[in-house]
Design a protein around this nucleic acid. Structure first.
Lengths: 209, 209
DNA sequence: CACACTCTGTAACATTAGTTACAAACAGTG
DNA sequence: CACTGTTTGTAACTAATGTTACAGAGTGTG
């Protein structure tokens, strides 16, 4: 597991000295597929780096309607939790393990020091910020400029890419929640996609063709 | 103008030494109401700080459909352009002066040094990032969880707050573009808002009651 | 004031998405 | 296999949003 962390950070250009420190002060956290990792309203004092697996980051409103913001894949981090912490603000997200996952948790109090002392870490954090920002923009694009049929298809393709599997194991109801629509609508559009031979439908499984 | 800059940065907790440097290496830029400041596809090498006025940041798709992301008000900055520059990526936004505005342009190449050397500047930049991120989330919330009637009313209230004026001087067509809908729809819903005595309509002017 | 242009109001209709209701298929468990 | 709970398919209907078309009001300019 520490080897995994090393290769991820090394890949990101972090020097050995800092990697060792990150290994020393952080700790691992595992989550089983479907497990809720962060609930809205909680305040976390750690920045997580995804070592293995896949997390979904979902936004909720007061009535518990939901929409998927983005996935966090292996190697990625959520620098947002940083600012979330600096400003002592509460978390507005729901983070769920979409797959059995392993995270490396870094206590926040080291952040400022590392950002000051390591150019590479600065770059890593800013780049992470930027990636999240870009993903939010892409989400806005989808919601704004695509109709539901297109959004659903894009959702399936994105999920395929994130899981690196052409088989998606979800119920229509789960998909509907990520898109903030109803199950019936999703079933209708999925059937349409199947008729156009873009996917194949089975119970709890969708194959992307 | 430099006094304005000083008070803004001082307010943000930046120390005198750095303020003077920012004054020295930056330069002012004025824009008249309605002027296009940043076009999609351009690459900027400066981080702008809004000294006076109001900017709108708009997202565009290939077909030139648009949606308002957020406003930049006096005192605010767009740290996004920073990462945009670090990564050498192109700008995906359209930034327009909603009002006669004055910006202070800071060349990018000083950023990394200041972030390293000034804790206060680090905080300023991260806080700016976070503010933009939060605004994107609020935009997503509006698009996702509100219907057009509610979104339109929220749009008017936001604009009222941003301009600190209960009179909004825009045509229905302009509003429709910010919300990515059609003029006819906006007129219809505005009329409804007027009937419910939340606003008053005149040519090129909407008064918030 | 005549003209051109922009802006607003409104009706009629089309399309998209959401809702309700119900039946049938499937999967797990005793 | 009988029972139960979940999942999917589909029809019929409602609601929200988008489109087209046109008329009239407002504004600036010669």
């Amino acid at each position: 597991m520490k080897e995994n962390l090393r290769s991820i950070l090394s890949e990101a250009g972090i020097e050995d000295e800092l990697i060792q420190e990150i290994q020393k002060v952080g700790f691992p956290k595992t989550a089983r597929s479907g497990e809720l990792i962060i609930t809205p309203g909680s305040t976390s004092m750690h920045m997580p780096i995804v070592l293995e697996g896949l997390l979904s980051v979902v936004r909720q409103d007061e009535d518990a309607n939901e929409i998927l913001l983005y996935y966090l894949e292996g190697g990625e981090t959520c620098a947002m939790s940083l600012a979330c912490c600096i400003e002592g603000k509460r978390n507005d997200f729901k983070v769920t393990a979409e797959d059995n996952s392993v995270l490396w948790m870094i206590p926040m109090n080291y952040m400022d020091e590392w950002i000051q002392n390591y150019r590479s870490f600065r770059k890593y954090v800013f780049s992470s910020y930027q990636t999240r920002f870009d993903e939010l923009l892409e989400t806005i694009d989808s919601i704004t400029f695509l109709n539901l049929y297109e959004r659903l298809y894009k959702y399936l393709l994105d999920k395929k890419q994130a899981t690196k599997s052409y088989e998606i194991k979800m119920s229509h109801e789960q998909i509907a929640q990520h898109l903030n629509t109803s199950r019936v609508v999703v079933s209708r559009l999925l059937k349409q996609l199947e008729n156009e031979e873009k996917i194949e439908l089975e119970r709890n499984r969708i194959s992307i063709l």
